[in-house]
Design a binder for these strands. Sequence first.
DNA 1: ACTTTCTTTGCAAACGATTGCAGGAATATT
DNA 2: AATATTCCTGCAATCGTTTGCAAAGAAAGT
Lengths: 341, 341
Amino acid sequence: MKKQVQHTIKDVAAALGLSVSTVSRALNNHPHISQETKQRVQEVVEKLDYRHNALAASLRNSRSNMIGLIAPRITMYFQSTVITAIQNKLHEYGYNLMVCQSNDLPAIEKELVKVMYASRVEGLIVSSTLYTEDFSHFDIFNRANIPLVFYDRVPREYPAHKIQGDDYQGGYQTTRHLLEQGARQIAYITGPLSCKLYSDRYEGYKKALREFEVEPNDNLIFCHELNKENALQTCELLFADGTFPEAVFAGNDTTAVAVVQYAKERGIAVPAQLKVTGYSNDSRTEIIEPPITSVEQFPYEVGVQAATLMMELLEQNSKPGQNYISLTTPIELVKRQSSGL
Amino acid sequence: MKKQVQHTIKDVAAALGLSVSTVSRALNNHPHISQETKQRVQEVVEKLDYRHNALAASLRNSRSNMIGLIAPRITMYFQSTVITAIQNKLHEYGYNLMVCQSNDLPAIEKELVKVMYASRVEGLIVSSTLYTEDFSHFDIFNRANIPLVFYDRVPREYPAHKIQGDDYQGGYQTTRHLLEQGARQIAYITGPLSCKLYSDRYEGYKKALREFEVEPNDNLIFCHELNKENALQTCELLFADGTFPEAVFAGNDTTAVAVVQYAKERGIAVPAQLKVTGYSNDSRTEIIEPPITSVEQFPYEVGVQAATLMMELLEQNSKPGQNYISLTTPIELVKRQSSGL
DNA sequence: ACTTTCTTTGCAAACGATTGCAGGAATATT
DNA sequence: AATATTCCTGCAATCGTTTGCAAAGAAAGT
């Protein structure tokens, strides 16, 4: 309640009978400043509770040290792990992270892009909405030549750097595994196919079926947002008349868990009568009975890659090399009991 | 690759033959500016790809519109949900969130506080490290009269606003429930008791024991960081010589899950031979077999409260009312099979 | 016609740091 | 003793907005 005043570099300078430039340089550990002066500056700084104004510094040298991140929602295991990695990595480089959520709404995403732009982030890392098909609101970043990196939910065509798990392989290997376990009728529950990662996976699924000369059956394809409620509705359809497929390939673990629980309630034996797989390998898959086969995406590594790429782009940002980097990160099928292993 | 130049308000003014002040006011929708002028400004702004510089604006009116958040780690279900709520709420008020993780290391927390301070956040929301006992690094915020709100991992004595789940009740109700189910030897696995929330819970535990006239047994108290590895080690001790307690009150769900799985492997029936409860009510508790009794903390509401409080503090920030708010949010014991229900 | 009021705009000083350039003092070189 | 070199430090412009004050022109009141 006493000193409401915020001291500036000027006050520090005055207290020492120095100029502001000297103080500034001392604080930035400039080589031309004597050790003794630095020492004295440091003392006064602490005595006065001097608060560095990063805003002013940023304005002057147009470097905000801030990276923006837009994710659909940060509660999902995959997302929060990626963000954890990104934040840790950026911190190593002295960068801060401004985090926003689109809640899977394209309108909010659009608004957030503008906010980030005006906030002078030096780079933007994005996992887009499930429903973003028009990416033109990101144009401002491209035009201003500010690094733009997408991860996981990446655009299909839009010119930008992209880091995506190997969803084609994920879809392929999982399906192939189910086929090898003897299943032929494999129901496929997927998120919106407008989203690249889901369509990639779907391609993998079809490829595996072709290899086993299984005719795809449109009645077994279900496409909707992958939450518990939708999953249970789909189950109602799938198990309607007492008949059901030999396997369900669920697009995420929430869905796979719902399917397993639904089956258990109906007295359907997993994996004997019904094989189930999920995607993302979140912590629930290994504790449910039976444990669920799922696809590990190594989210922490994805995050490290995204942050590292961003840092590289910032270092050589003058370079106008127009070639966009497209990274595919490996996945690993984790086989568990639910698929018959 | 063409227009590297970033246009400023000055360019817009020049293009229109207006002054910068007029343009600034037009952009801020100032009432003294005619509709026609605003219209024309808007057009040129779009044509020139003008990018508002929030840094400069912040510097000028010393409002960064940024709130800082420091959490131990954002992957934990409880944390990511709280943060989700906070970010959504702040967005409603036009504020942005800068997120950092201490990784439960006091040294990093200390550093982050300084970074946030220099970044001119208008307020700081914190869930501290498990091991933070000295909170003096937060003094700079108090001295500068910048709102400081703790949640979940709140300090015991330190003067600041606090939002904490009702851990005393959580500990009490859970223990009482186990006692009512007939258990008398109740092992208690807790995080470091230096952390207020754990000691509050422990008090609740002891209170319930007293009410049932059960003598506390130090051999049943285990205190360590609550991860899977530690939990399994504790199990080794607890079940060493073939004997084991009637119940385990685990300090979080990760620990409870580990205990249940350990018991299952040893052929110990839960809840018949051993009752188990967890804490946080994360999604694993209801899908494991048997489902685990746990304590719902309503993390989304906690986040909303934290953000709302912060917004209130910012509005009446001139007010030097030194009374700190201490909110206790309700919890709910969710009874499931693992405790014998 | 003259004063008053209202609307719309411009001038110029902040905000707090950084940095190129120049200059003074101290030391080394010839 | 004079010059060159090195080491520190200061001056002042700059980053891009915002905003108090003043003023010009139009409209209105008497």
